[in-house]
Structures are given as structure tokens and as C-alpha cells.
Amino acid sequence: MVDFLITITMIGVVSWALIFMVTRRIFSKRSFEFSNRLVSTLHAIVSVSLASLSVQDWGCPLCPLASKSSPQQMKTLAFTLSYMIYDLICCQFDKRVVLDNVVHHLVTIVGIVSGLSYQRCGTEMVAALWITEISSPFLHLRELLKEFGYRDTCLNLAADVCFAIIFSLARMVGGPCLTYATLSSPNPFLIKAMALGLQLVSAFWFYKILKMMKHKLKKRSHFRPQTKSN
């Protein structure tokens, strides 16, 4: 099983890189980030779907805790591991290297490798994957719209609001619940550290999102036409 997971990961890294290069070829007039965000959107959609399919009991999505991972869960995690390795490498070739994004990738990679090595905690890790990726399509949509020329439009604001709401509910409601369940269960130390690390990164991003939405709404109110009173 370990050899099979390594194969999935290696093939995945190469596949993501090829998809990126094809995307760059098709959208040659667009930016480096544009193509990478298309790849990231594809990963988010597929990973959320795989994570949903690997839930063993929807009556209790976090059951069983601290248990042996199912084959489906490990394949899902290997799939995401391949993307995280690709994206970490790919982002280093961009003009902007964001430190918190690099930390997020490293924490995730270490956590997934640990989970696959232990072959445990599949429930917690798949739930973390679902929580962290459910808002990603809206994150990328808002940036893609800007490149298409829809910056400061109602459509872009709608994408911002959708992203902010879904991120906040997933990361700051579901996230703390999952973190508590992971920390209070007999999980390996690295899994607990990953859970806590991801939640701290999520809290930092939540703070940045609040500032972003406050700025956008304030900026939009300034451009709203004033009605004259008689």
C-alpha cells in the first residue's frame, strides 16, 4: 500500500505540472498566477469530491476518530499531497512568494506524510481537507475575475462575500471543532501539531479577510451615488 501511495503522489506531481503547462499554453496572454489558480481550482473541486466520498458515516462525519485510515482516505490524501508538493514548488517561480502560504503548504505536507506513514487519523485528515478546500474555488474566482477586468464590480464583490462567508463558517466554526476533536483524541503528536498549526494559520487568514472585507465595503460606500434631499 505504501508503494502504491508513493506512486500516486509522484504521478500526481508530474500530472499537476503538465496540467499547469498546458494551461499556460492555452492562456498564454494571461499571468503565471492565472494558470496556477485554474489548476488550484481543479484540485479544490476534485479533492472536496474525493473527501466527501471517503466519509465512512455521514451520520457522524468525524467517526471513527484516531482510527486506521481506510484505503479511500489514504488515496484521497495522497492525491492532495501530490498537489501540495506541486504548488509549493510552482509558487517559488512566481514573482510573489507569500510566507504564510509557504508555511501552510509545509504544515500540510508534513501532516499528510505523517498520517500516511502512521496509516491512521484518516477521518480527521479528510475532514481537514474538506474544511480547508471548500472555500478555495471562491478564493480563486475572485482573483480570476480581476484578471478578466471585473475588479471593483458587483460580480467581484459577490465572489468576495461568498468566499468570506464560506471560509469563516468552515475555518472558524468547523475548524475549531475538528481541532478540538483531534487534540482530545489519542492521535500521534505530529497530527495534533498539524491540526493546531492549520487552525492558527486559518485564524490569521480570517483576520486578514475581515480587514479585506471592511476595506472593500468602505471603499464601495464611498463610490455609492448620493441622493439629494429636497
Score class of each variant (00 low, 15 high):
183 L>I: 12
195 A>Y: 04
18 L>S: 15
6 I>G: 09
99 L>Q: 09
173 V>F: 10
36 N>D: 00
139 L>N: 03
168 S>N: 05
128 A>L: 12
170 A>E: 01
17 A>D: 09
71 P>Y: 03
65 L>P: 08
217 L>S: 04
9 T>P: 08
47 S>Y: 00
159 A>H: 02
66 A>K: 05
73 Q>V: 03
187 N>R: 14
182 T>Y: 07
190 L>K: 15
152 D>V: 12
45 I>Y: 09
30 R>D: 01
94 D>M: 06
155 L>T: 11
169 L>P: 06
49 S>L: 13
155 L>H: 02
43 H>P: 08
230 N>W: 08
48 V>H: 00
182 T>R: 02
174 G>S: 04
198 L>N: 06
210 L>W: 15
158 A>K: 07
77 L>W: 03
174 G>M: 04
33 E>N: 08
76 T>E: 11
161 V>D: 01
160 D>T: 01
166 I>Y: 00
136 S>D: 11
91 C>F: 06
160 D>C: 12
224 R>M: 15
149 G>A: 13
51 A>H: 01
194 M>P: 07
119 Q>G: 12
73 Q>R: 01
46 V>T: 08
94 D>A: 01
100 D>F: 14
180 Y>L: 13
214 K>I: 11
12 G>D: 02
158 A>M: 09
44 A>Q: 05
95 K>L: 08
198 L>F: 10
200 L>D: 13
24 R>K: 00
23 T>Q: 05
154 C>G: 09
62 L>W: 06
213 M>P: 02
84 M>P: 11
228 K>H: 13
49 S>C: 12
229 S>I: 14
88 L>W: 06
70 S>Y: 05
119 Q>P: 00
212 M>Q: 15
218 K>W: 15
100 D>E: 09
163 F>Q: 05
70 S>V: 01
199 Q>R: 14
169 L>M: 01
165 I>M: 13
59 G>E: 07
175 G>L: 05
46 V>Q: 07
114 S>E: 03
27 F>A: 09
78 A>W: 09
152 D>P: 10
164 A>D: 02
9 T>F: 11
200 L>G: 08
79 F>V: 05
62 L>T: 07
8 I>Y: 10
34 F>S: 08
86 Y>K: 00
227 T>K: 15
206 F>H: 10
186 P>W: 06
103 V>D: 05
213 M>H: 03
206 F>N: 12
50 L>A: 04
174 G>W: 10
8 I>G: 07
222 H>N: 15
